[in-house]
Amino acid sequence: MPQETVSDAAAAPSIVIVENVMKRFGAFTALNDVNLAVGKGEKIVVCGPSGSGKSTLIRCINHIEKHDGGRIIVDGVELSHRLADINSVRCEVGMVFQSFNLFPHLTVAENCMLAPMKVRGISQVEARDRALGLLRKVRIHDQADKYPAQLSGGQQQRVAIARALCMQPKIMLFDEPTSALDPEMVKEVLDTMVELAREGMTMVCVTHEMGFAREVADRVVFMDRGCIIEQADPETFFRAPRTERAKGFLSQIIH
């Protein structure tokens, strides 16, 4: 069954192409010749030890971090330092952060409405409708007029997901969306992400939630020291990792 999904996704055209990408912070190489193609509708889970470059990789995909070498093509547009309108690319790429990063001075609904109104240019009424619809979907619409600080961590992260979805992106990036949460809130956020995956969203998730990876991932990508050193469907990866480093890593997170 997972095998089938992988081949499906492989057949689909790539919406994100990462080619020989290098990223350095001073003398330190955070990404070293990374290659990754993400098919439309494909769900990729990225894992690896701390400092291996997982965040850096997905931050390069929406150009929050600027790569130093290689090519990144998102939805047919190559990201480069000279790209005049990076924001039109970013509109198509939603991102959810480990620390939520909601705007604390805006209500939940306003958080969701800001970018659709100011960037996509839709009307306030339409933006609010869309926001309430998506807040309902993440089961939090009754909190629409509260401020982020009045919500629990799990609720805030679901708002952050709704806020990203309000831009109607083609791809969603998640950077350890559950690792800042108390254990009892992890499930509500993961459930939301599973639902999103079921609807066919293209997703790249940095996460160590193996249950989630097993359930939705088409492919697990394992990174270490700035390189992708192994990728496979989740069943194969978790059962029989090929590299020693992946084995070591898995034994650590399983305890």
Binding site: F97, L102, L114, K118
Partner: peptide, 30 residues
């Protein structure tokens, strides 16, 4: 202000002006 605020605004496609106008300045003034 935490860096995450600017990153979140950028990730949503807000440009420099919009980020200052709706995210940074209102929080900095408070």
């Amino acid at each position: 202000l935490p860096r995450g605020q600017i990153e979140a605004a950028s990730a949503l496609g807000l440009g420099g002006y919009l980020t200052y106008r709706y995210v940074i300045v209102p929080q900095a003034l408070r």
